[in-house]
Every structure is written in C-alpha cells, then in structure tokens.
Amino acid sequence: MDVSQFIGVMLAAMFAATFGSMLGLGGGVFLVPLLTLFFDIDPRIAVGASAVCVVTNSVVGSSVHIRSGFTNLRLSMLLQVTTAVGAIIGALIALRVNAGAISLVLGLVLLYSAASMLRQRRLSPPPPNEDDPDPFGLRTSFRDPATKLDVVYQPVRVKPGLAISGGAGVLSGMLGIGGGAIQVPLMNLMMKVPVKAAAGTSSFMVGMTAVATAAVFYSHDEIDPTIVVPAMIGIFTGAKLGSQITRRVQTQRLVLVFVIVIAYLGVSMVLDAFGIGL
C-alpha cells in the first residue's frame, strides 16, 4: 500500500464522516462511490470497508449527539426493532428481486422526501400539549445551542413510523446501505421529530444496522485493513467535526444541506435504475 492512497482514503473518509454524522446518515453513501471511483477499489471491498466505517462514524458521532441530548434513545431502540428485522428480510430476499426496481423506488422516495423537507423547512413542529397522550413514553426535550432554546417534542404516528422503519430496514438489507437517508425524513416529516433530534437518533441507529453488514463482510474475508485503517483515522476527526457542526448550525441551514444531499442521492439512484452511472 502506498502513502498517497493511505492519505487519500483518510481524507475521503473524513469528508464522508463529517457529512454523515452531521446529517444522521452513516456516511457509506458518500464513501462507497469515493472509494470505487477515485481509488479503484473493488466494490465489495469498498462496501465492507464502508460498513466498518459507518459503525465507527456512528460510535464517535452519536457519543456527541447523545451528550447534546439530540439522540432520543427510546425512539432509537423502538424503531431499531423493525429496522433490524427488516434488514434481515431484505438481505434474505436481496438476490430474488430486480435491483434496478429497488433503486428506482428508493430514488423516488428520496426525491419526494427532499421536496417535502424543502417545503416544510421553515415550519417547526408545534410543541406538544402537556395533556397529549404519550403511550410510548417518547416525549423529550433538548437544548438547541444554535438558538439557546429548549425544544420540547413528542414523536407522533409511532405505529406507521415503525412500519415504514421496517421498510427502510428491508431496503438497507437489500442495498447494503445504512438507512439514515430514509430514517431522517421519516422521523422529521411523518413523526414530527425536529431535524436535529432526527439526525441524532438516526446517527445512533445506523451504527447498530451496520454492525450486521460488517459481520457479513468479515465472515466472507472482505474487510481489508489497508483500506479500513486509514478510513477509520479519517473518521475519528470527521465524525467529531460533523456532530459539532450539527450542534451549532441553524436548523434551516442543516435542512438545506440535507435536502441537497438526499436529492443528489435520489437522482443518482433513479439514473442507476436505468443503467446510467453518475
């Protein structure tokens, strides 16, 4: 392994981790294309390295998000139940369906989420009433350091949220992605979770989802330390940086970055479905 590749992979991972932990995505969506396109790394090795990186990114980033109070631990565990089951089902049926069709569906879902988040970015969910029922005990609050205000919220539509989260898990298992790009808009748009809390909660969840993927690649001897080691070094710095940016940045700007990123992913998935690489 040469030094320039070591440094290049490290910088690519740092970039992926900064955006990933900032937005509550794993970062694999950036890392896999970077590794395969710029470093000519075999796609399977890139996905294996990316799974380890997503775990690392989640561990480092969510420790900051949890301290900031952005991670709703109860919500993350609750949604993780269906996500994890979905991921198993997705992995089992991955070989039996048309990958192009899945990409098309996922791409359209992402584009729809991007448009909805853009439209609603100026609206913050109304604070819950003291008397509102909270059957799942999910109401919580966090202090937003950017505005220095306490934000109280209560996730709503929990049961449909669980179902969609399961669907997100199925897609994760099929496509080998962390699922953050679906979970964040789901929590924000449907369950009325503020964006920072959605990013913090998703950031913790993607680590648990990626552990299973990492284990699969490990058992198939597809974890390459010459890629993983420099990538992990890059992530240690990128993940801290990204989660600190989430703390300080104005929510509207965070949403705008998120919308641009998922719109890009959506377009590339749709093109991919028609065999056009971006």
């Binding site: 480092v60 420790s63 900051v64 609050s141």
Partner: peptide, 28 residues
C-alpha cells in the same frame, strides 16, 4: 404530572451519560 414520563429527568440524563461514555470508551 407528565414530567415524570418524559426523558428530561435525572434518569434520562444518567442514561445519556452512560450511553455516551460506553461509546467513548469503545472508541478510545
């Protein structure tokens, strides 16, 4: 009182601190 049902309690803070610490220890 609904405040005892929310996570914004000392229990919730202890849980956060504990979870964050396990992640930090693992990474270090």
């Amino acid at each position: 009182m609904s405040s005892d049902r929310t996570m914004h309690t000392s229990d919730g803070e202890r849980l956060r601190e504990l979870a964050a610490r396990v992640l930090e220890i693992g990474f270090r």
